[in-house]
């Protein structure tokens, strides 16, 4: 009887140690396996040229739309997401500053790796380019020394992620404007074919 009890205690101890290992493994695996996280949910917006609104602030009596999946959203902040996949090419996010404060944050699966507000805008424009390390080196090599690019280049830790656009509506009358400001941001994939065309455009004013 005593032998069985002692074995039982050992088995329980081993079970508890196993429980600890399983606990740690499960917590580490949740972000990888989750299908409800922001990056997975936003993937449907990958082919859009504009942010997918995930929380539009209520205007008038209209409640927030059903596509809103933010768990506890700020009722005064319009939120949109642009998903990117850097395998298709670098992601370019262009925003024009307006009367409402706007912020851009780049998130990967491990968390936000870059955030900028419209106070960093140069002449009313905020251009972010998110690229991989290889694409960054390529962009640096292609840079024209006399006409340096004004893009803010950010190297992403992962190929996939989302850029989150937040616009704050300080007053209820600014809410339609905040929803529109989220939609006015453009997020496009820079393909190889686009790049020379973009360069020509930036060279032209200098030539004149």
């Amino acid at each position: 009887m005593r032998v069985v009890n002692l074995r039982f205690v050992y088995a329980t101890l081993i079970g508890l140690v196993l429980a600890g290992i399983v606990h740690i493994a499960a917590v580490l695996a949740i972000p990888r396996l989750s299908e409800t996280d922001a990056v997975s949910r936003a993937r449907t917006s990958e082919n859009l040229d504009h942010p997918q609104p995930i929380y539009t602030v209520a205007t008038g009596d209209d409640p927030a739309p059903p596509e809103a999946w933010l768990p506890i959203p700020d009722p005064a902040v319009a939120v949109g997401v642009c998903a990117y996949d850097l395998a298709d090419g670098p992601m370019r996010i262009s925003a024009r500053t307006g009367p409402l404060s706007l912020s851009l944050a780049a998130h990967a699966r491990r968390g936000a790796f870059y955030a900028v507000t419209d106070q960093a805008a140069v002449r009313g424009a905020l251009d972010l380019v998110i690229l991989t390390r290889a694409q960054y080196d390529e962009a640096l090599a292609d840079d024209d020394e006399n006409d340096p690019s004004r893009d803010v280049r950010i190297v992403a830790p992962d190929n996939r992620g989302v850029v989150v656009v937040r616009v704050i509506a300080g007053l209820p009358s600014q809410r339609p404007g905040a929803n529109a400001a989220v939609q006015a941001v453009s997020c496009t994939t820079d393909t190889a074919a686009d790049e020379p065309a973009g360069k020509d455009l930036t060279v032209k004013p200098a030539g004149r």
């Binding site: 580490l28 996280d37 968390g111 989302v162």
Partner: peptide, 22 residues
């Protein structure tokens, strides 16, 4: 980006997009 694994797991399960430091 340096948040602890529990915070990352909570964010992933809820679909939360937390405010970044900046």
């Amino acid at each position: 980006a340096q948040s602890d694994p529990y915070t990352r797991a909570v964010n992933a399960r809820r679909g939360e997009i937390p405010l970044a430091v900046g």
